[in-house]
Design a protein around this nucleic acid. Structure first.
Length: 331
DNA sequence: CTTCTGACA
DNA sequence: TGTCAGTA
């Protein structure tokens, strides 16, 4: 078929089709005599996926890569691209949600006070701007992709930051004690050691990590584990799905503001009575000097958040920095 | 009338 | 990507 036909079929302009070809996403054959392009059924399918990915917001350059993976029947890579795209959309969704909430707040303010105090407007705008920037500034500072293959080895050494690692995981499992069939989420799952233990108890686990290499290891070790690319600030799930959220040795990578955002995110994906269990390096109390040396989360700050949001806390300190916090909704 | 390439918005 | 021009 010729360009007008295929363009009409897919509801795009012939110009767009030529443009995609120019960018190397498509390579229809041309007739010898007049240079007219000829499109096959495969080209239709290819164009369709280009359009779909594009509508999902993927840049043409990335679509090109994804298409190359498909050509090489490299499904694993393709899945990676799709999941990457998914996290992008999820972040966008969160931002939109944020704006909606801000607007709602303003509406509520307007209703109750009948005026919109200028300060409140400014404050709300600033807050939402801040949130947006924090999400945007997320990056993989720690090159976990490179570390993935050696991670377990390092953890097994049971020294430094990972001392008492196994004991900490065991305590999380004990406190969470999932009922078989319960849905759990492990954020910053790494190579899945914690999620794996919970699976063994019959929980249906999902693992989120920002490193696709880590997730690859997860999948290999625990085939039943569902893995998704994502991070604390943009958990790649719709809300209200999980009975519990756990995380070990990951939370301390966040700044204080991000930690509070992350807690909000956890609560978002939890069912109404969902519980949270964190094991991480923290400061037991506010201490400006210590906090300068080790930029770990500050326990009282987390406590405060949990209290403010109606959680009951169970807490255990394993060593100088390692703390386990278990939070259950009071009602 | 259709398509093509190239230029420009 | 849309649009316009000048062709084959």
């Amino acid at each position: 078929m010729k360009i007008k036909e295929i363009a009409g079929k897919l509801n795009i302009s012939p110009r767009a089709v030529r443009f995609y070809e120019e960018k190397g996403l498509l390579s229809p054959t041309k007739q010898e005599n007049n240079q007219y392009r000829t499109f096959t059924e495969k080209d239709v399918w290819r164009l369709q996926t280009i359009i779909s990915l594009r509508e999902a917001g993927m840049p043409l350059a990335d679509i090109k890569k994804a298409l190359e993976e498909i050509d090489a029947t490299n499904h694993e890579q393709l899945q990676y691209y799709l999941e990457l795209q998914r996290t992008v959309m999820m972040s966008q969704w969160l931002e939109i949600k944020q704006v909606i909430e801000t607007t709602d707040h303003m509406i509520a303010l307007l209703k109750s006070k009948n005026t919109l105090p200028l300060e409140d407007i400014y404050q709300l705008a600033e807050a939402s701007k801040l949130l947006r920037e924090q999400r945007k500034n997320w990056k993989d500072k720690w090159n976990f992709d490179q570390q993935a293959s050696t991670h377990d080895e390092r953890v097994a050494n049971n020294t430094g930051n990972y001392s008492d690692y196994e004991q900490a995981l065991a305590l999380i499992v004990k406190w969470v004690s999932p009922i078989p069939g319960e849905k759990g989420l492990d954020i910053g799952a790494g190579t899945g050691n914690l999620a794996g233990k919970l699976i063994e108890l019959g929980a249906s686990m999902s693992a989120v990590d920002q490193s696709k290499e880590m997730l690859r290891q997860c999948q290999r070790k625990y085939p039943d584990l569902e893995t998704k690319l994502g991070n604390f600030l943009a958990i790649p799930y719709l809300g209200g799905q999980f009975d519990f959220v756990v995380s070990s040795f990951a939370f301390h990578h966040l700044t204080t503001e991000q930690q509070l955002l992350a807690l909000e995110e956890m609560r978002r994906v939890l069912k109404p009575r969902g519980r949270i269990c964190l094991a991480d390096l923290m400061h037991a109390a506010h201490d400006p000097i210590q906090e300068d040396i080790e930029e770990y989360p500050v326990l009282p700050t987390l406590h405060q958040w949990f209290e403010d949001n109606g959680y009951m806390i169970k807490h255990h300190q394993m060593n100088r920095f390692l703390h386990i916090v278990y939070a259950v909704p009071i009602r």
